[in-house]
Computed example of a mutant assay.
Amino acid sequence: MRVVIAEDNPLLRDGIVLLLGEYDIAVAAAVSDADALLTAVAAERPDAAVVDVRMPPTHTDEGLRAALAIRSAYPAIGVLVFSQWVETDYARRLLSEHTGHVGYLLKDRIVSTGEFVEALRRVAAGGTALDPEVVRHLLAAPAVDAGLARLSARERQILGLIAEGRSNVAIAEALHLADRSVEKHVTAIFTKLDLPHDRSDHRRVLAVLRYLRA
């Protein structure tokens, strides 16, 4: 089995390399940032990648965004997120966009090296490995529609009126806006919700369904 490691802490990164070597797992690359991770995965095509969440330059979500990119481009490569943090939205996306080949473990809850290696082998083989604390967070936090979260207050107000069945003209009258202004807001809503262009009113229906589910 061949893996790539992305961890900005050099001591932990070197420690994982040594640990995996003891279990006859080859480390094709050990890097410290997300860009180097994506480059290494593209070049090496490993069986799995071990990815930290927070890496340079901003130490926020670089690792998780890279993990999602790997899952999208190389669904057969296992991705094991190994972090101190539970990022619920990203965890949900990792688990929902593709089945299998994914894991999310918390560093301070690993009680044995064997447990970590077993989880890595399972993810590389197409299974899943989730820390119970990650599962708890997923169950406790409601799903957030990223598209709806991008809407402005005015756009959410207009989407609510669309859900009531009002036309653009009726919305303009209710909010004392020009018809053209309402049209621009509605177009922005469709764009932020990633709804494809449709000559019919189908996008209005899809937007309303998203609104009601949330």
Rank of each mutant, 00 (worst) to 15 (best):
R210L: 00
L12S: 05
L38K: 12
V81H: 06
G160M: 07
H202V: 12
V86T: 13
E22A: 06
K192G: 01
A140H: 04
R109F: 11
M1C: 14
I189K: 00
R13V: 03
V53G: 05
V3L: 12
R93C: 00
R13Q: 05
I16N: 00
G103R: 07
E183R: 15
V134Y: 10
V3R: 04
L212M: 12
L161Q: 15
Y211C: 08
W85L: 13
A149C: 03
A49S: 10
G78V: 14
V182Q: 03
S181L: 11
A153F: 14
R136I: 11
S167F: 05
D24R: 15
S200F: 07
R210S: 01
T99K: 15
D35W: 14
A119L: 04
G100D: 15
V51S: 15
I77A: 15
L161I: 06
R45L: 15
D201V: 02
L20I: 02
R54E: 08
L12F: 04
A163I: 03
K184P: 10
R154S: 09
I162C: 07
H197L: 12
A29C: 13
H101R: 15
Q157S: 04
V41Q: 07
R213K: 13
P10R: 01
P10V: 01
L120W: 09
A141I: 15
D198F: 01
F82D: 01
R156N: 04
R154K: 09
A119S: 07
R213A: 03
K184E: 14
D35G: 13
R45N: 15
R156S: 03
L38R: 08
L148A: 01
W85V: 12
D198T: 02
L19W: 00
R210G: 00
L151D: 02
E118N: 11
G165T: 10
R213S: 05
A36M: 05
S72D: 15
V79Q: 08
R54M: 07
A163E: 01
I77P: 12
K192N: 00
